[in-house]
Amino acid sequence: MTEWIAFIVTKYNYWAYISLMMIGLFAMIAKKNLIKKIIGMGIFQTAIILFFISIGAKKGATLPILYHGHAHGDAAVRAAAYINPLPHVLMLTAIVVSVATLGVALSLAVKIFQRYDTLEEDQINLTKYPFRRNVPENKEE
């Protein structure tokens, strides 16, 4: 019994991220509304970010900024005293890139709404209005 509890305690963080990832993936696969798909993509990205950050964690270590800075002097820096900076670097850029990709996804959704008047995937009719919004504005439809 105790070994099961120890096993769960050392692994449950991964399972939490996997369940978040599953929620995001389900939204991207099964939801019909494009905005809901974009939200699913955001949840998926968050799960990946949390996963990477938890990889960088070390027991008994502090955040990867040297405590006294330059006053630290020539004292050797122990790697065990600081958590792994690499996942933090990767996720720092990933967060900003995810905001930028969200902007692109939303502008694509705006274009789709302008052309087909809907964001529901199954109501987008590709043959009915092939070039509806692309006529010059001064011409009457």
Binding site: P64, I65, L66, Y82, P85, H88, V89, T93
Partner: peptide, 8 residues
Amino acid sequence: PNMVTAVL
């Protein structure tokens, strides 16, 4: 001193 900045 900030390793994240140095690596980045």
